[in-house]
Write a protein that binds this DNA or RNA. Structure first.
Lengths: 396, 396
DNA sequence: CCCTCTTTGTCCTGTGAGTGGGAAAAGTTG
DNA sequence: CAACTTTTCCCACTCACAGGACAAAGAGGG
């Protein structure tokens, strides 16, 4: 099949495509209810979408008391690729035009191997997904990278944890390789977009999405749009000082949040506790695997291990303290916690909530839910698909 | 003269009005260069503005090499009222449609006296300005209050420092009294809008405006728009914890930024230092006036008093630490420092800069000016006038 | 099964916004 | 005074869109 090359010709068509994407198949009449257009104009625009192949007819809709309407849906053969490059692993997924995940692969991998090696991996994963018959090609791809991105150009800038990526033309290179349009963004921003599209943040216009993985970052959504800042580094909260004169951090300062709590810091603390004999549970796991991760700490905590619980609580307090400051500043309507350490679950959440509710003013916290992300590892790839579909479903 | 009641009938007219407001008198041809409309259409819309009296003809423009053009300007009889209610004083100013200040009054006053007493004062100041012949009436008024505001309704909500104002229908009451449209916002947001309209932040789309007066607040401008948060309390950074287990604050917590550095805290510290005999300069001023304010500290510092300088530096460090966190989070293109304590000048600025440049990542601080506000006490009233003019110069 | 009512889809025309060209008016420059 | 510019006014033409008329298709009642 030839890939779709059409783009909406005007704002109406773009609007219709987004309605179909977010609301699934719809009858012409239902579309008419949601959009402010005369029936004649609507019919013309829908016909154009059918002509260009962006949408297709899909049988008859149920009757609403009169003549039955024809259903319209986005072309079911459209395929988006969502790529979420984390610090230690890559997620690649294929979605249809409604951003439903049709296939999803995850592989451990170190970003520090550099863009060339990583993209080789990504492309082979994409090829594997294609080989299963899920897709014959891709109409667009969204890529998330764990660092700041100059958004318009799709180029990482000065990424602390991924040297070698600085200035690498990710967007252009992948667009060339995949033969389709590509958009690049920070992985945390994509997670926020994912949760907003299909997760807990559906229909919330102002919220924060804190991702605690190997590092810590924060997606900022203001007025429905992602705020990226002037250099694309907005949300980079890992190096906010959480502890005056605290631990040294890789960035050269002391007391950075990331140095005190993150997947990496937690693992280090756990190993230390195990070696000092503070926790049998952790020691046993260390002996078994030779190493510890956040998952081990979560398991130990679930088993009631006091040391593990204390580690989580202390970390939660640190993060909560920073989030409390951000809540006072930003006054969001929701805070979503996501990333690798969400396995720590309720213990972590409780510690964070305690800090935030205690330290921020009642007006800001009064009706502020602080919840775990709903989509887990798929948030990033869904957000990536959403990014490119937003781009492609806008007037050219 | 009857007040203008016309409003722009469409987006083109609104656009033209804003061009005339921000760019001053302009010829039709110059307007044509700035707006994407055919000459014929432009002529029609300009004529309508002239008909409704929103704009007037204003002589001939200089020739650009051919026939001379007629100048168009906003009706010079339009008057906006800008009101900036601070914790301890009120500013009231009259502007023309181009937001130039024609008259400005300032009076000490305590907000805690409640809305009725304050508005009596404001109305009498407005009447005084009117009596000078500057205005025969007002076409709109913008009001800034020192606390969170539910923006669409123009009602203060749960303002910590102004009990008695909670839920008071400021917008409606003043609209009734003044007989013109009124908009209400947080005073810090208005300061940000003022600096953006006519001060250092001209043409900066993403910046923070930190106002250090009796308390501390922060105006947030993202993508050219003020971010107010879901409950209108965004930017309320005075109660972010700056010192773990620090001084008790009126809010019930400990270590709030505001408890450690603000006009009020600085005055308290200065008195304490004077009484302990740490500073002759401050002691002399205390003896002379019976009290000390930020102005005294500034004067003492200017005279080289070591204690005063130390107080300023320490305060600057505290604020700088918080701003550093906000810079990491928000990634602004500019930070403006304003409010009553700007008299502390370079010493304060240097302390803040040091902290921010040290604690935030280079990508965020690389090209980040941190400067004093340019407009001083007029920022608030200009912002207020801007607020109402933005409202009135939008399609109805 | 027939009749009426409702909903959906199509066609057609009127309207108003907006564009673009040309001519007249009003300048400047040499 | 002639040649050239710029502004302004006027007019015809295009285009998007609304809204009504009408046909098609189905539901439901007698």
């Amino acid at each position: 099949m030839r890939r779709m090359t059409a783009r909406p010709a005007n704002a109406h068509q773009a609007r219709l495509l987004k309605l179909l994407r977010d609301g699934g198949p719809n009858s012409r009449a239902q579309l008419g209810d949601q959009i402010d257009l005369s029936r004649s104009k609507l019919a013309v625009e829908v016909d154009r979408l059918l002509e260009t192949g962006l949408a297709v007819a899909d049988g008859l809709a149920a009757s609403r008391g009169g003549r039955r309407s024809h259903n319209i849906r986005l072309n079911p053969e459209l395929r988006f690729l969502g790529v979420d490059i984390g610090a230690t692993s890559v997620d690649v997924a294929v979605t249809n035009a409604e951003l439903e995940i049709l296939g999803h692969l995850n592989q451990p991998m170190d970003v520090r191997e550099g863009p060339v090696a990583v993209f080789e991996q990504v492309l082979s994963m994409a090829a594997k997904l294609r080989a299963t018959g899920l897709a014959e090609g891709f109409d667009g791809a969204g890529i998330g990278v764990p660092g700041p991105v100059r958004f318009p150009e799709g180029v990482p800038v000065a990424p602390p944890i991924m040297p070698g990526w600085d200035g690498f033309p990710v967007r252009e290179a992948l667009s060339q390789e995949l033969g389709c349009p590509v958009m690049v963004d920070n992985d945390v921003n994509l997670m926020a977009m994912g949760e907003r599209h299909a997760g807990v943040a559906r229909s919330v216009g102002d919220f924060l999405c804190v991702k605690i993985g190997t590092g810590i970052g924060c997606g900022i959504v203001a007025g429905g749009d992602v705020h990226r800042g002037v250099t694309g580094s907005a949300g980079d909260i890992g190096h906010i000082q959480a502890v005056p004169e605290g631990r040294p951090c890789a960035c050269g300062n002391r007391g950075c949040l990331e140095a005190h709590f993150s997947g990496a810091a937690l693992a280090r603390d756990a190993v230390e506790a195990a070696e000092q004999g503070l926790s049998e549970e952790l020691a046993a796991r260390l002996a078994a695997n030779g190493t510890l991760t956040a998952v081990d700490v979560a398991a130990a905590a679930a088993a009631g291990d006091a040391t593990a619980l204390a580690l989580i609580r202390e970390g939660g307090n640190r993060v909560g303290q920073v989030i409390a400051a951000l809540v006072s500043f930003f006054n969001p309507g929701l805070v979503v916690i996501g990333g690798g350490v969400t396995g720590l679950g309720h213990t972590l959440l409780a510690a964070i909530r305690t800090q935030v509710y205690r330290q921020s003013l009642p007006l800001a916290t009064g009706n502020l839910p602080i919840v775990l992300g709903e989509l887990g590892p798929t948030a990033g790839v869904i957000g990536a698909a959403r990014l490119i579909s937003d781009h492609l479903f806008s007037p050219a």
